Amino acid sequence: MSSSDKHNNKSLNHAQHPFSQFMNSMDRLFTDKRPGKGILQSLDHFFGSSATARGFQTELSENEAGYMIVAAIPGVKKEQINIELLPQAVTISIQHQETAEQINQNQGLFHRHHSSGVTSRTIRLARPIDDQKIRASHKDGVLRLFLPKKKGNQIRIEDS
């Protein structure tokens, strides 16, 4: 195949798919990892890059005595945690703040980025819990909650 045939074939291919070049450009826009960052990486940075900004993992286990909730929240201080108790649910909220500064003395640029927000998870429980006996601990980026089940009153059935 001569070089003129290749050029004509290439022109024909673009004519058959007029949006192919546009789609390739869009793909590069969303996946480009050059120093300028792609748009998705920029959005992640803008809306928060910490794990708590995107959510946190929780595990729920149950036995006869109650429920155990374990939440992985690395880098979060005890003061940032709020736990709200409902009759058959618990909500764990994390207040997060992030400040980043960039200084480029060669170009005389200074950039400061500040973001804050709240991330929360609500865990629903099958039975009511005894709010007087709840225990919570936070150590090494792990929050543990023990929520004892509320015991109902037994009703004695009488013979008629």
Rank of each mutant, 00 (worst) to 15 (best):
H114W: 08
H96P: 01
I103Q: 10
Q132R: 15
F146I: 05
F19S: 07
V70T: 13
S116Q: 15
S50K: 08
I123C: 09
S2Q: 05
R112P: 00
I134G: 07
A51H: 06
L60M: 09
H7K: 12
A126M: 12
E98S: 06
K133M: 12
Q88I: 01
F46C: 04
R127S: 14
H7I: 11
Q97T: 04
A65R: 07
G48Q: 01
F146S: 05
E64D: 15
Q88V: 02
G55V: 04
P148I: 01
A65G: 07
P128A: 08
E84H: 05
F46E: 02
G66N: 05
S93D: 03
M1A: 10
S93Q: 06
A51Q: 14
L125E: 06
I39S: 13
H7L: 14
A136S: 11
I155D: 00
Q107K: 14
G55H: 09
P18G: 08
V76I: 08
D32Y: 06
I129A: 07
T99A: 10
R144H: 02
D44A: 11
E84Q: 11
S61Y: 04
F30K: 08
Q154S: 01
I155H: 09
K133T: 11
S11R: 07
T99D: 08
M23P: 02
K78Q: 13
A53F: 02
F146H: 08
D44V: 01
K139T: 12
L85F: 14
S3Q: 05
S2R: 02
G66H: 04
K77Q: 13
E59W: 10
I69P: 00
L43W: 12
R144C: 06
Q57L: 11
N13K: 03
H114D: 15
P128N: 02
Q16T: 06
M68N: 09
D32E: 13
S4L: 05
Q80Y: 03
Q21C: 03
R112S: 13
Q97W: 02
R135T: 15
Q97H: 05
K37D: 15
S115Q: 10
I157K: 06
S42T: 11
K33V: 12
L125H: 09
R34Q: 01
N24H: 06
I81G: 01
N106T: 10
P148A: 07
K78M: 09
I103W: 08
H138K: 07
K151R: 12
G66W: 03
S137T: 15
Q132H: 14
Q102M: 08
A89W: 03
N9C: 03
Q95P: 01
Q102Y: 09
S116P: 07
R144A: 04
M23R: 05
S50E: 14
I129N: 05
P74C: 09
F19Q: 10
K149E: 08
N106Q: 13
L86R: 03
N153D: 07
Q95I: 03
A15Y: 13
P18N: 03
E62T: 12
R124V: 07
H96R: 04
S61F: 03
L143E: 00
F46P: 01
A100Q: 10
G38R: 11
L29D: 02
G141C: 06
G117M: 11
Q57S: 12
A15D: 06
M1I: 05
